[in-house]
Design a protein around this nucleic acid. Structure first.
Lengths: 206, 206
DNA sequence: ACATTTACGTCAGCCATGTTGACTTTTTTC
DNA sequence: GAAAAAAGTCAACATGGCTGACGTAAATGT
């Protein structure tokens, strides 16, 4: 950060300094502004970790997101990705096309439902996705180690961070998201794959 | 969230399922992916809280950021804002002009250095900035309350969250950012204003 | 006094990534 | 055989980044 300093220059001279936002209508207001700002700065650093690598390929953050989720859910459908990213088909389309054209993603027709395009990473895509995860994980790991301290219980620090982040998510989204994360982690185990979205009842072709 | 579910459809049928990214080269890799994703989902919810209000005025998130930091640092210079937001003068220029034109921000020439434009919120701008803070604070407060539990020590939960977020920030930025936050909080106290960026030695006109 | 630097603003154009709306094709479902 | 679903595509547009080039006023340095 070049400088995140507000010059105090004529702070004492000019200003009619509007009184600091005090508890209006009983709201506690002020005391959480630090968390608001820390989230802003922390997230900005966090997402910009991959930027240099992305630039090498002429990609942006949208490509990163697509790569990440396909990495985590190999064989996912385009619709699944749209649900996760919450963008339009057209927005995703562009990014996806570039990733396919440049050989990072492989898109194959589903066998039980041939309308579907199932998405997989190529080895090249896998390597890139892993690079991103390594980068961002390194930041998180350093942070958790600091939170834990030298005698640290990293696991506790992680549990705290995780609980906080989950609680920051809209209540109705938490279940699906936690299941999404859990399912991805056991992706190698096809037996545990059927958890949500009523199994699409493979009836026609199945 | 409409649906963050990856269809398990032909998960078991099709895939050559590339083996789940395992610790390569000794890196622990995998176990922090949940935090990576939770950060993504949590931050997305967090920043979209103000969207509905912003839309009413035809504003976007860039306007929110400007409003927020001017609210926190009344009388700040344009350059200060550029340092904080890390965008170009031209990018800031557009949003700033709209905010000034529509009467949310008041820009006055500095008295000791008349090249400067010192930024203040109008009452209208103050009200809006407070609305945003109230919205986002509410989310954070709910989250911390959940972390703390019913018998909860909210203060501990907050301290944990804060420590984690600070640690997620690039080491060299932490000092400046923490000072920035601290200074804003004591903005009503001009005596404590002079902390960073050598006081601009008001020599010429002063 | 004069040259330089700083703070700010602005024009013009480009890029990335989001949006709507309309329409097609293929395939599955009813 | 009709309807619905999955995916792709074209066109047009908005937002918010970016670079480069200038202009002007005021402060600074010699």
């Amino acid at each position: 950060m070049a400088d995140v300093n507000v010059s105090p220059a004529q702070r004492a001279a000019d200003p009619p300094a509007p009184p600091q936002a005090r508890s209006i209508e009983g709201a506690p207001a002020a005391p959480l502004v630090d968390i608001i700002e820390l989230l802003f700065f922390a997230y900005r650093n966090f997402v910009s970790d991959p930027d240099e690598i992305l630039a090498r390929y002429g990609f942006g953050r949208a490509h990163h997101r697509v790569l990440h989720f396909v990495h985590r859910h190999p064989g996912m459908r385009v619709t699944d990705l749209l649900d996760i990213l919450r963008i339009t088909k057209q927005s995703l389309g562009r990014v996806l096309r570039e990733l396919v054209d440049q050989g990072f993603i492989d898109s194959r027709a589903g066998s039980s439902d041939r309308r579907q395009r199932l998405l997989y990473l190529t080895p090249k895509g896998e390597a890139l996705a892993r690079d991103f995860i390594a980068l961002q994980s390194a930041r998180i790991e350093r942070a958790l180690a600091e939170c834990a301290g030298p005698d640290g219980r990293m696991a506790d620090a992680k549990a705290n961070a995780r609980r906080f982040l989950v609680s920051m998510i809209d209540a109705e989204d938490r279940g699906p998201i936690e299941k999404l994360i859990a399912r991805a982690e056991s992706a190698a185990d096809p037996a545990r794959a059927a958890l949500l979205r009523p199994p699409a009842r493979p009836r026609g072709a199945g």
